[in-house]
Amino acid sequence: MVLPGGAWLFVFFLVPILFLASVSLQTGNIFDGFRLTWHFRNYVDAVQLYHVQFLRSLRYASIATAVTIVVSYPLAYWIAFRGGRHKTTFLFLLLLPFFVSFVIRTLAWQFILADDGIVLGPLKRWHLLPQSFHVLATSTAVIAGIAYNFLPFMALPLYVSLERIDRSVVEAAQDLYANKLEVFRRVIFPLSIPGVFAGVLLTFVPAMGDYVNASILGGTKTTMIGNIIQLEYLTNFHYPIAAALSFILMAVLLLGIFVYARVLGTRSIEEYV
């Protein structure tokens, strides 16, 4: 059992990672080729040049993740506990928009939220909003776009964790003098933490690396680290810098996950999964 698993890890994880690590320490250009020179300076350069976009991505991804929790928790809760026979239908409805491609969905928002579009246009004509008001090309739009696009990644694990809570445990809490609020606070919420944990990972990690929302919904100061990696790789052919940025991103995410798991305690999570 170790061998196929090990081979799988080697081919699909270790080799690409080592390749990336190697590229991040190379110097050269696309014409003369890149050579491994152990150029750790690439990392320093990457941070010096792009720490602004890095911190911005961190901020956007954090806020967007928080927003997805706030939006999808009641939704998942309602479907899991009040959905009754139609749970599957509600879940399907929740997922329906996500059958459309990521980019198209985001472009649709660009159309919907246009300055004189179908939402803001009438509001401005009725003088409910100032003429200069706009949603697009702001960091709010980028964060909202990320939150929207990754909503199912939060809602589904939340739903699963809420759905699998034994209903008799909820009744036991009621039986033991817990009112509705206490039932939620003492029993339902703690038992849904594995779902929150999974949802945060599934949302935060891709949100951190996202570049579509920033490029479609963003403005002049909303460039995220994903856009930079794309630019450095595809346009500038600075493979080492792009690789270094990817590595830093990965390291930050891994460290974050590690700390996060420590704080929440994976052991206790495993226990009731």
């Binding site: 080592l18 390749f19 690590a21 190697s22 590229v23 320490l25 190379q26 050269g28 250009n29 696309i30 014409f31 003369d32 080729g33 890149f34 050579r35 491994l36 493979y239």
Partner: peptide
């Protein structure tokens, strides 16, 4: 070894 592996991962140029 790791070093050898990393070295082997070079992106070849074309000028040669």
């Amino acid at each position: 070894g790791l070093t050898a592996f990393l070295a082997a991962c070079g992106v070849s140029g074309t000028s040669k």
